[in-house]
Simulated scan of single mutants.
Amino acid sequence: MAFEVLTDRNYALYLAGNTVSWIGTWMQRTAIGWLSWELTESSSWVGIIVLAQYLPLVFIAPLFGVLIDRMDRRRYAIACLLVQILFNAGLLITYALGLLNIHALLACCVLLGIGNAAYQPIRLTLIHDIAPKDFLTQAISLNAVIFNVTRMVGPALGGISISAFGVGGTFLINTLSFLGTLFSLLVVHIHPSARSAKGGSVLFQLLEGLRYIKSVPKFLELFILSVAIAAFGRGVLELLPAFAGGVFDSGSSGLATLMAVAGAGGIVAGVLLSGTTRRSTLVIFISVGCGLLGLFVALLGISSLFVLAMLSIFGIAAMSTLASIGMQAALQADLDSKFRGRVVSLWGMTTVAGPALGASILGALAHVTGLPMVAVISGVFCSVVCIGVMWRSRYFPLGS
């Protein structure tokens, strides 16, 4: 039965706290985007402000992964949340005092990005330490479902909040939303886990985590697949504004439709995964996601009808979610606990940086070949990498 993991009080409390916080975070990101436009009326500044919130997650999250493996995870998570509350309160106070110009907003967003980079790895790591082992796949899948739902609901609530309470009121709501996660961390039971030795520098232990990934063939294969899926599968989804405006001439309403379809695809795939407890079924889902993703990406490139593009985008979102969430569950199930923080933080980096990197490469290539041909090339390349890795792997049914 799907969502059996919710019968576990620990996980249910943890998920509820995170859900409240996620909604607040998406609401605030909407408010920050609106404020950056109000302050500058510059799309370039809007992009810079968004980038400031994500770059720390790409570059320094793995360093925090080292600390997670060294420290008590509950204390680390609580410390991160208190820092995030402090940073968000600082943003609120600066705005309330009328001191929040675009440069101050940029500085605040860098701090918020650092706080998120510190908390993101522990959020993923704690799923394994809180959820029952038999329902780990369900727990990770349900997290993905809730994340996709809040990513759609949060911005809508953010728009309502900005209209009703203003930007400052939305900042206050987000600051208070962290209290839900803080409460859940104070009351849930976290299973004890092994820690890495504290000897050696942070860089040494980070490299030790990389060597650990390389030493386990299955983990290395999962990382290669993750990069291919993120860059050449989800990377195409980052170009949806260009497809909506430049290929289908459907405007903002068309973009909203395509984004909603993508969100629906992710949710459907997450629900499918949430009923999975057997390893063999999980491997089948991963194989299907990896095997079909490139086909849907290529289909988007040859789609001349908007409805066909909708079908393609639903397939891209669903297959990439099946593959990426399934692989995360497989990775988490077999990780040595001493390396969990480092490996999960590196995994998070690939899933965040991959789409951005892929979108930048594909966007540059589109100036030469056009967007439709870029999607076809991306789909073919994604299929070649995914099928090639699965064919050579003993972990997947395509292997010999």
Rank of each mutant, 00 (worst) to 15 (best):
F3I: 15
S21R: 03
T40D: 04
S44Q: 11
V46Y: 04
I68H: 01
Y76N: 01
I78A: 02
L82E: 12
G90L: 14
G90I: 06
I93Y: 10
I93H: 03
T94M: 06
L105C: 07
L106M: 12
A107M: 13
C109N: 13
L111K: 08
G113I: 08
G115R: 04
P121W: 03
D134H: 13
D134V: 12
F135V: 10
Q138S: 12
I140P: 01
A144H: 03
V145Y: 02
N148Q: 08
G154M: 03
L157T: 12
G158K: 07
I162D: 10
G169E: 15
T175H: 04
L182S: 03
A197T: 07
K198C: 02
L206G: 11
L207N: 08
L210I: 12
I213A: 13
A230H: 06
G235D: 04
L237W: 02
A244F: 01
A244E: 08
D249R: 07
D249H: 14
S250F: 05
S250R: 09
S250W: 07
S250M: 09
G251V: 01
S252V: 10
G254I: 02
G254E: 01
A269G: 15
V271Q: 05
V271W: 08
R278T: 15
V288R: 00
L292P: 07
I302M: 09
I302R: 11
S304E: 14
A309G: 14
I313L: 09
F314E: 11
I316W: 08
I316M: 14
G326P: 05
G326I: 07
Q332K: 13
D334S: 11
R340W: 01
L346I: 11
W347V: 08
G358V: 10
I361L: 12
A364D: 13
T369H: 06
L371I: 10
P372W: 01
S378M: 04
F381N: 14
G388M: 09
V389H: 00
W391T: 03
W391H: 04
W391V: 01
R392G: 06
Y395F: 13
G399F: 00
